[in-house]
Design a protein around this nucleic acid. Structure first.
Lengths: 203, 203
DNA sequence: AATAAAAACTCCCTTTTGGGTCTATTTTTC
DNA sequence: GAAAAATAGACCCAAAAGGGAGTTTTTATT
């Protein structure tokens, strides 16, 4: 029996999920948490084999929570179960130690396939995400650490002089980075830059 | 028995939802659709008393779909069931004829309360949304039609001269609107303006 | 019909953005 | 150890954004 801890604040979804897991014949739900805090608390007492983890929790980002969980309990497999289908989110989850990524509109069977796969030490991506990661891996924009920091400042509304001061760099340098960002994200101006950054969840 | 048609592409959630409705004792699921097209097709043959409608459908925006449904079948009650909790989205749904609005992390019982309320010709908002709508109704930013159009152009990356041409107005006029938008949305520059517009789903 | 409020529109002027081109370290990767 | 990428910086200049201070036209409301 694969033991599963469900972490999701969508209570109706949790009900469906619990039924699905418990009726699979090879897995059972041993815990349910509606918040990140609740999840961490319960992990003190009992560690499941797999955690089904939502990203939009009321108190935590699932991305950060995944990281914390994997540090404290490296043997526990984390499977992201969320409605985000952005490259950068998937990537971050995998970098933070997730063993699987399933979007919420996937077929219910994919959840069960995922549970089996990750307990066999495989990495599992649901069909749609698998396609995304393969298709985009080439054309995907990759920002350098500095570019990411700058992008954050821009989205937060700082001007070049202000950013220069914050980052201890010349205004010209910031301006250059900014232009490179526009080019990389194929944005014609700041407005589009911000839109793309938010849409692709780059910040 | 209240007849319910569920429209949502999150198949696992639908399972939970179906169970919830069917076990309520006063309602039953008569149809399930995973797409907007599918929903409209099924409505040709059978109209439920209530439609539980997601906003993020693969082929349709639930906001537009609600409008279409209410035009063709005014007697059918539409209840939005979604994860969006932005003022403007709720507002648009209600303007398009929705009788209820429930967020996905609401308590399951709220769904049942909602079904009962809307069949009694009441408007039903789940607790969190009800709070939001009351709290924000005063402080909520309200944009004029022109401002909305302009905001769309800005978010899409058009410059003032381009917008002026598109809207057959002077560049100065556009510039003024832009400044008014900055002021209204409390944004110090375009970057923040775009961020707020996207976050608040004003476009 | 009077009037107040909101919406639509214009001009001036400064700061910020963005396009182009170029140099020089440092770090990473093959 | 060479090539490639990342980091940091510079200068010129045109275009766009944004601050301030106005006028006219619609649209409500009494």
């Amino acid at each position: 029996m694969i033991t599963v801890h469900i972490v999701d604040d969508h209570k109706i979804l949790v009900e469906g999920l619990k039924k699905l897991v418990d009726n699979s014949g090879f897995a059972r739900t041993t815990a349910v948490s509606y918040t990140g805090k609740d999840c961490l608390w319960k992990l003190n007492f009992e560690q499941p084999q797999v955690i089904l983890l939502d990203i939009n929790l009321p108190d935590w980002s699932g991305i950060d929570l995944c990281n914390v969980i994997k540090e404290k309990y490296p043997q526990v497999k984390v499977v992201a179960l969320t409605s985000y289908s952005e490259y950068s989110i998937v990537r971050q989850m995998l970098e933070n130690g997730a063993s699987g990524y399933i979007i919420k509109n996937a077929m219910p069977e994919e959840i069960l396939l995922g549970l089996q796969a990750v307990t066999n030490n495989e990495t599992f991506l649901c069909e749609e995400i698998d396609l995304l990661m393969n298709k985009r891996s080439l054309e995907q924009i990759w920002l350098t650490p500095r570019e990411k920091v700058l992008l954050k400042y821009i989205v937060d509304g700082y001007t070049n002089p202000e950013i220069a001061e914050q980052m201890f760099l010349a205004v010209d340098t910031i301006n250059n980075y900014r232009k490179k960002l526009l080019c990389k994200l194929n944005a014609r101006n700041t407005a589009v830059l911000v839109r793309i950054a938010l849409e692709q969840k780059l910040v």
